[in-house]
């Protein structure tokens, strides 16, 4: 399992996506089989990679990289479920690009652990899991919304169905859209609250720490507010429960998710103590080390420098 790299499953998913795209024009007898085999191979390699890199770790979702890879895994599993339950649907054209983007984000994300003390393991795991699931539900809602708009456009323009590009019915997409939005509200809300609890446990007594100084927290709060507003809007305005409006709401939700993920990816210091973050930002060599180790190494470096300075003075 140690030999499995990100490239292995990313390549499998890429081949599956290429086959999906090629299927729009030409299909061979083995086309679907090859697509399924590639996707299954990708998911198996993906699972092996996650298992190998999680064995013996304190927390399953312990680094931003792994967190992204778990999101990609759930989306890939969702794709395979659709492939087996609705084989004629062109779901891969929508889900696989998202899987590959998430893997690409994982590659750019930090491999350093989130700050986690043993006392907050439960809240850390809960926070990570809820954020993973909410990312998946918002993404599924986004895919369903996009498919709804395409299907609706095709129906309005009287485009006959094509065996190469079949989409689910508007009714199914609308239902999936609505449910994804509702689940997202609950999951993001849970993720945000568990994040606050986690932060309180980690930074109790630390007067210098400011929760809302973290850009990831601010963007997540914005997404939560948007989701609550969208859900309330849907509840009080009947037209917003239907068709294109709910599709637009889920597309906008994905916009907020993208904003949150960008700040999350750009910001290595999410959830860490301020001093560790400050030390990392000052010392690039310590940037990719675990916080506790980074802090001790920074201190050691300081001692070493002081020692060397002293030696120079003496000489």
């Amino acid at each position: 399992m140690g030999n499995v790299s990100v490239l292995c499953f990313a390549a499998s998913y890429t081949v599956a996506l290429v086959l999906e795209i090629a299927g729009l024009w030409v299909r061979f007898g083995w086309h679907r089989l090859a697509m399924v085999v590639m996707a299954v191979a990708g998911l198996v390699a993906h699972s092996a990679y996650l298992v190998y890199h999680s064995v013996g770790s304190v927390a399953f979702l312990r680094t931003p990289e792994l967190w992204y890879l778990v999101v990609a895994w759930v989306l890939a599993a969702f794709y395979l479920w659709v492939v087996f339950t609705s084989p004629k649907t062109a779901m891969g054209l929508f889900v696989l690009p998202l899987v590959l983007i998430t893997i690409a984000l994982a590659e750019t994300a930090s491999t350093e652990p989130f700050a986690q003390q043993r006392a907050s393991q439960f809240w850390g795991a809960l926070h990570g899991s809820l954020m993973t699931l909410s990312t998946v539900t918002v993404s599924v809602g986004f895919i369903a919304g996009l498919m709804y708009l395409i299907q609706s456009w095709r129906l309005k323009h009287k485009v006959p169905p094509s065996p190469e590009f079949q989409l689910p019915s508007l009714e199914w997409l609308e239902r999936t859209n609505s449910r994804a939005l509702s689940f997202s509200v609950v999951l993001v809300c849970g993720g945000f609250i568990s994040g606050i609890v986690l932060s309180r446990l980690q930074h109790s007594g630390d007067s210098s720490y400011q929760l809302f100084g973290d850009p990831v927290v601010i963007s997540l709060l914005l997404m939560l507010v948007w989701l609550i507003v969208a859900e309330v809007f849907r509840m009080i305005y009947p037209s917003a429960r239907r068709g294109r409006k709910v599709a637009y709401l889920t597309l906008a939700s994905f916009g907020f998710l993208a904003l949150t993920l960008i700040t999350f990816t750009m910001n290595d210091v999410h959830g860490r103590p301020r001093e560790a973050s400050a030390a990392q930002s000052q010392d690039p060599s310590a940037h990719f080390a675990p916080p506790s180790v980074a802090s001790s190494e920074s201190a050691a470096d300081e001692l070493h420098l002081v020692g060397r300075h002293k030696a120079e003075v003496l000489s």
Binding site: P160, P161, S169, E171
Partner: peptide, 14 residues
């Protein structure tokens, strides 16, 4: 048949 199978069934699931 085109109306029901090719269009209505793309709007309604059942």
């Amino acid at each position: 048949s085109v109306a029901i199978a090719d269009f209505a069934s793309r709007i309604f699931e059942r």
